[in-house]
C-alpha cells in the first residue's frame, strides 16, 4: 500500500497545562489541497507548528511518506521537503526581497538550482522581481504574502502548509493569492495543507477539509459536502 504523504495520528500537544490539541488524526495524500478550518484558538497554528518541528507533541505521531518526523528539529524537517508559511507571513522585514528568497533557498547549495528556483518564483509572482532590492518590511500586506509563499517555494518542497494566507489582506488580493495557490498545486503538483478562518474560500479550492474545534477534529469530509453542511455553514460560513 502507498504511504500517505502526511499522516498525523493521535496527536496531543500541550502548552504547559493547556492542551491545545487532543488526539488529532489527519491524513494528506499526495497531490491534494486539504483545508483545515476552525475558529480562532481552535489549534490550527499549533498543528502546523507541530508538523514543522517547532513544537514537540506530548503523544502521537507525525509521519511524512511513512517516516516519523516527531522530535526532528525544524531546520531538518525543511530538508525533507516540508515548507511551512507561518501565520502573519513573518517575512524578514529587515532583509530585502531578494535576501528573503535567498533565505528560502538556504538549503540549495548549487547556484544554478537557486537561480532556476528563483525564476520559477518570479514566474508565479512577477511583482517580486520588481521589488527585489526593496526591504521586505516596506511591502504591502499582499506583497508580503506573495513573498512568504515565494520564499517557501524556494526550498523546492513537496508539501506546503499555509497558515491563514488571507489574514489582514485586502479582499481582491485574497482571491488572487488563492488562485496562485491553486496554480502551484495544479501546475506544479505540490501538495497543500491550507489553514483558514476564511472557510468559504478554503473549501472552494480544496478537495477535502477538516474542522477543528477546541483542539479536536469534529468533522472531516469532502469540501463540497462541508460547504453544504448546515452546522459548518452556521459556524464558519456565516450562515
Amino acid at each position: 500500500m502507498i504511504k500517505p504523504l502526511l499522516e498525523v495520528q493521535n496527536l496531543t500537544v500541550k502548552y504547559g497545562a493547556i492542551t491545545a490539541l487532543h488526539n488529532v488524526d489527519i491524513r494528506v495524500e499526495e497531490g491534494e489541497i486539504v483545508s483545515l478550518i476552525g475558529a480562532n484558538g481552535a489549534g490550527k497554528t499549533t498543528l502546523l507548528r507541530t508538523i514543522s518541528g517547532l513544537l514537540t507533541p506530548k503523544t502521537g505521531s507525525v509521519s511524512f511518506f511513512g517516516t516519523s518526523i516527531v522530535g526532528v528539529s525544524a531546520h531538518k524537517i525543511v530538508r525533507g521537503g516540508i515548507s511551512h508559511i507561518p501565520e502573519g507571513r513573518m517575512v524578514f522585514a529587515n532583509l530585502t526581497v531578494d535576501e528573503n528568497l535567498q533565505m528560502g533557498g538556504y538549503l540549495l547549495s548549487d547556484k544554478r538550482v537557486f537561480a532556476a528556483e528563483r525564476d520559477f518564483v518570479f514566474s508565479i509572482f512577477p511583482r517580486l522581481r520588481e521589488r527585489m532590492t526593496q526591504s521586505a518590511g516596506t511591502l504591502s500586506g499582499g506583497e508580503q504574502q506573495m513573498l512568504a509563499i515565494g520564499r517557501a517555494l524556494m526550498s523546492k518542497p513537496r508539501f506546503l502548509m499555509l497558515d491563514e494566507p488571507s489574514l489582514g489582506i485586502a479582499p481582491i488580493l485574497v482571491r488572487s493569492i488563492f488562485e496562485k495557490i491553486v496554480e502551484i498545486n495544479k501546475m506544479h503538483g505540490l501538495t497543500i495543507l491550507l489553514v483558514e478562518q476564511n472557510a468559504n474560500m478554503a473549501l472552494e479550492i480544496s478537495s477535502r477539509g477538516y474542522v477543528l474545534e477546541t483542539g479536536r477534529v469534529i468533522l472531516t469530509a469532502p469540501s463540497s459536502s462541508l460547504r453544504n453542511d448546515p452546522k459548518v455553514r452556521s459556524a464558519y460560513l456565516g450562515g
Binding site: 514543522s52 518541528g53 517547532l54 528539529s73 525544524a74 531546520h75 531538518k76 525543511v78 530538508r79 515548507s83 511551512h84 507561518p86 513573518m90 524578514f92 522585514a93 529587515n94 532583509l95 535576501e99 535567498q102 533565505m103 528560502g104 538556504y106 538549503l107 520564499r151 526550498s155
Partner: peptide, 21 residues
Amino acid sequence: KIGVAMRAVSFNHQTAALMGV
C-alpha cells in the same frame, strides 16, 4: 550566506529555522 542568516535569526529564530537554518 551566514551573514544573511544572522540577520534572519535576529528577526525571528523560528522563522529562520523554517528556512532550514
